[in-house]
Nucleic acid binder design. Sequence first.
DNA 1: TTGACTTATATGTCTAGACATATCATCGTA
DNA 2: TACGATGATATGTCTAGACATATAAGTCAA
Lengths: 242, 242
Amino acid sequence: MSLTADASDKPTLYKRIRADIEKRILTGEWPPGHRIPFEHELVARYGCSRMTVNKALSELAQADLIERRRRAGSFVRRPQHQSAVLKIADIRAEITALGRGYGYELISRKLRAATAADRERLGVKKAGKVIAISCRHSADNVPFAVEDRLIDLSSVPSAATADFSREPPGSWLLHHVPWTEAEHTISAIVADDRTAEALDIAIGAPCLVIDRYTWRSARTITAVRLLYPGDSHRLVARFKGG
Amino acid sequence: MSLTADASDKPTLYKRIRADIEKRILTGEWPPGHRIPFEHELVARYGCSRMTVNKALSELAQADLIERRRRAGSFVRRPQHQSAVLKIADIRAEITALGRGYGYELISRKLRAATAADRERLGVKKAGKVIAISCRHSADNVPFAVEDRLIDLSSVPSAATADFSREPPGSWLLHHVPWTEAEHTISAIVADDRTAEALDIAIGAPCLVIDRYTWRSARTITAVRLLYPGDSHRLVARFKGG
DNA sequence: TTGACTTATATGTCTAGACATATCATCGTA
DNA sequence: TACGATGATATGTCTAGACATATAAGTCAA
């Protein structure tokens, strides 16, 4: 081992302890189930107080890399049964990150009393007003995605006066509604005639579908369906863990 | 406000402080940009030491709910530009979670010297041996997904003797390779004749594609492509945050 | 063999201090 | 006006203790 207690340290001590342990886990030197040295052992090894070691281990536990059990010790966790994490980026950010020009076009915007279908889609019972928006995002003037969105005006009244002909509703909401929870569903369909025309692809071509349903504190905000050309668009996720 | 300092406490103090603040942020009472009370103010309010308050705030910062700036204070963060986190579950776990019977069937298994295409797919330069596996997962005897996998034997030599006719390679790898990193790409295609037959769907039907590329400490382990019937399969993600 | 009780122990939380460090605000100077 | 030095301040890290609590493991009795 080389858990040296000194070293010319840029990072603080607890970070170094955390990094040391993390490295051993990630390289497989300490496999899942392996017992990590007790706090008092690490205290002796690094020559610091227990609180410092505890902070390092607590953060590793919070990151699900280790599991801490009273009286037993700390153990390397088995990879989270093969689940992974995928990051879905904002469309504008995604296009900009690709170094391509972002374009936005409002297709339609309707303010109406919520129909039964609208209420079902938003998961609300009470009738109220909604805004239905249809728009298109493009990259270098090539259709990138079409968006079909419903906003619950009783949750976001200020959306009634927002100008969605210039700003995409997703960006607007992001800046006007603070913290949210959301549920995403990803699926695939083949393009019908309307979709094919909007995305400038062939009828029957594959499309990636993202349905996002957003709320805040049990209050529905918006439901959106994004359609991407399936053969050209890709969602990429990199993750560390199990 | 009702930041009461006492109360019949099941949870510990720092957890209660953290929950109090989190609630205010999530409900929008403290919007993005809002300055959270200084540590010394919270110390006074809760009647505890600074370390206790610090622990609560540190965890909120780690969860990206707040941002801490020296000398300035702690602030509610603006939602992470509309990125989200999606959990992709293991196929067997996914099917079992749905309360359906999991079925597995090995279609082919070939051990061979890596071809140029294999090396490209695995992202390795050196020639070596690989295992190519094709298999199918089903739910209640209905095809659920087809899997096409490549395992780098120089990284996982023991895979050569594994019995993939009984155990899915994904599960086997999970139990024999500790911690990994991975990259996922999700896209959509339409079924060609071979895929259509394997999944028992029509040619031209939409399919969801997940390409997963897994490595450990810069060492390639496996590359896998999963094909799901796109109209029936869904990836669902729930998340909290921006 | 099984079940109930006891004990040792590692983690969980907390304190009342300490010094370090980044940075905002102010004041003085060129 | 612009720039540079200075001090105030909030967070960042750390200490050397403390008591609480869950639980593995051992002990003893039914």
